[in-house]
Amino acid sequence: MSTDIDRDIKYLKNAISLHQGDTGEDVHGLPNNGEAGFMPWDLYVNNLNLFQTRKSLDANTDVFSLSPGFYCGSGLTNVPPEANAASEATIDVTVYGSVRKKIVYTECAINRTWIKLIHVPSAPADLTKNVDWVESSTVVTLFDGSLSDVSTTQTVKESFGHFQQLKIDYATSIGQRYSCFIPAATGKYTLSGFNVADGLDYMTFVNCDLTILSSTSFNLTDQFAFNIKNSDSSISASSTFKIVLKKIYGTR
C-alpha cells in the first residue's frame, strides 16, 4: 500500500514539475504547435484573433448593430456627430445585462474617443434609458519648459488642430503663477500679470503675446512691463519683469 502511495506522489510531483517548474516559479510559455501551454491551444488561437487582429468593417456599417467584439473601419454610420466619419476608427463593443451595450469609438488619427451606452435597445431616442455619445476628455502636454525669450519659434508635440482648446500655464519672473484657456487656432493671445511691491509704493504690470504661428509652432513676442508709483501715479518702464511660459496643454 505504501509503495502505491509513494509511486502516486512521485507521479504527481513530476507532473507538477513539468507544468510549472520544480519550485513552482518557472511557469512555461505559450502553446506551441498544438501543444498545451498555460491555456488550451484553441483558446490561445481565439484570443489571438480577438485581441491581435480587429475585424475590418465595411462602409455604412451601423455601429449600434455590432455584436460584442473589437472592430476597425471608416465611413460607418451612427458614429459620434463630432467625429470625422471618413477617418479610420476603432470600435470596442461589450454587452452587459444580457442586451445592453457599451460602445467605445476612437478616431485613430487624433486619438479622440467617445463612449455610448445603450441601456434599452428598444428605446434609442429615450435619454432616460440610453446615453448619447459622450466624449472622453483627453489632456496632452504640448510644451513643458521655461520660455521668456521673444521671437524664438517653438515646435509642439502634436498639432494644435487636434484639440478644442489650449490651457496655458505661465508665471512672472518673480514668481506669480497664472493659468488661462485660449482657442486652439492660429492667432495672437495676450498673457498678463502684475505685482504689488512689498512697500505698496508701486505696482508692476507685464504683458506678453503668445502667437500661434501654425498647427505645430508658436512663439512669444512683445514682452513689455511698466511700473505705476502710488505716490504720483507716474509710469516708468521695467526691464526686469517678464512673462515666463511654463506649459501648454491641449484639451479635447
Rank of each mutant, 00 (worst) to 15 (best):
T94W: 07
A83S: 10
K167L: 14
T172N: 10
Y71D: 02
K157F: 03
G193E: 01
Q176I: 03
S151Y: 08
P68S: 15
I9D: 09
T138S: 12
K102E: 14
L50S: 13
A15G: 02
A123W: 06
L213W: 00
S67R: 04
N32T: 05
D132H: 09
D126H: 03
G37E: 07
C208S: 02
S179M: 09
S214A: 13
S122D: 12
F205Q: 04
S217Y: 00
Y189I: 03
T211N: 02
D169N: 14
E82G: 04
L43E: 14
S217M: 03
K129L: 15
P40T: 09
I118A: 10
S146V: 05
N46M: 06
V93E: 01
Q20W: 11
I235T: 12
F226R: 01
N84M: 06
K10W: 14
A171W: 00
R112I: 01
D169T: 09
F38G: 07
G29C: 09
T153G: 01
P80F: 02
T113Q: 06
Y11G: 04
L76I: 12
V45L: 15
T77L: 05
G21E: 09
Y44D: 07
S17G: 04
W114F: 12
C72P: 00
I248L: 08
K188F: 10
K247D: 12
K129W: 11
G145N: 02
Q20F: 13
L50D: 12
T106P: 03
E158N: 07
S236I: 00
Q176F: 05
N78S: 03
D22M: 00
A171Q: 11
L48C: 15
D144L: 14
M1N: 10
S215H: 10
D26V: 06
S239H: 06
G145C: 06
R7Y: 10
S231A: 15
Y202R: 11
S151T: 11
V27P: 00
R54Y: 14
V104G: 03
S87K: 02
